[in-house]
């Protein structure tokens, strides 16, 4: 479980995040949603420890990052897997080389053991015949899969995903969402996904934190997101025509029930 307590962050005198409290549960897909520029990525970088919040603290299963020394931080980092928005695969490594990379650096396994583990992760994300290809030779969806395989190579306790569906078609997005959800439940990880994709929200939003203008405006899940009284959340959720239609249906349903 990861807990954010009273997180505030400034950049050049401008407050980007203020007083965010949120809990991200183990074994669940936790989503951070919000409009572009709302502070989601900054919040995620604070959670990972890439940025230091000016106020508040982040607790990883009760361990505060702020109080950790360098060795403890390095140990914590080996427990974290991260999927970046642009995949962040190493250009000069093949698919296998990318997945092998964290194993090569941190795993006590022999070379054969590392190869076996890397192959297992590649198979787990459903990639076939791509071991010797370079990132520039595979599609965006495949790159995301490789990035997921690399992120889970060390069997992390915490998995962070920054907009995993950006630049992907809806079908591939759903496949990536399902993969992340399956992996989370299979390995009992604490998964935090930064997204503004409503398909992800409805598909895998077991715990949702809505960030608006740097503040946490709403916490809930995919079951109650349509019933929220938060104006800012409703503006975000019902922004598209499709979801405006959904809203109308829900309102008619409510009226019918009231009658």
């Amino acid at each position: 479980m990861i807990k954010a307590e009273n997180i505030s962050k400034w950049f050049d005198g401008q407050r980007i995040l203020y007083d965010i409290n949120a809990t991200f549960e183990t074994g669940k897909t936790n989503l951070i949603i919000g409009q572009s520029g709302s502070g989601k990525t900054v919040f995620m970088k604070c959670l990972i420890g890439l940025l230091q919040p000016e106020e508040g603290q982040i607790l990883y299963d009760g361990r505060a990052i702020r109080n950790m020394n360098n060795d403890e931080r390095r140990l914590l980092r080996t427990e974290i897997g991260m999927l970046f928005q642009g995949s962040a695969l190493f250009d000069n490594e093949t698919v296998l080389g990318n997945v092998m990379f964290p194993l090569k650096m941190f795993s006590p396994l022999s070379h054969a053991g590392q190869l076996e583990r890397a192959q297992f992760c590649i198979d787990r994300v459903g990639l076939t015949n791509a071991n010797n290809k370079y990132p520039s030779e595979i599609s965006g969806g495949m790159q995301k899969r490789v990035a997921i395989a690399r992120a889970i190579a060390l069997n992390p306790k915490y998995l962070f995903c920054d907009e995993p569906n950006s630049g992907l078609d809806p079908k591939t997005s759903i496949l990536i969402d399902e993969l992340l959800s399956d992996i989370t439940h299979e390995y009992g990880m604490t998964t935090i996904i930064n997204t503004h994709d409503m398909n992800s929200v409805l598909g895998i939003g077991e715990n949702i934190v809505f960030i608006n203008k740097g503040h946490c405006d709403w916490i809930g899940n995919d079951k109650n997101i349509f019933r929220s009284k938060s104006h800012s959340l409703n503006d975000f959720v019902f922004a598209s025509k499709l979801f405006q239609e959904v809203k109308l249906v829900l309102e008619r349903e409510a009226d019918y029930k009231a009658q």
Partner: peptide
Amino acid sequence: MRVTEQIDAMDIMG
């Protein structure tokens, strides 16, 4: 490597 977040990826791995 910096602008494509490859360096961030390494930092996060520890």
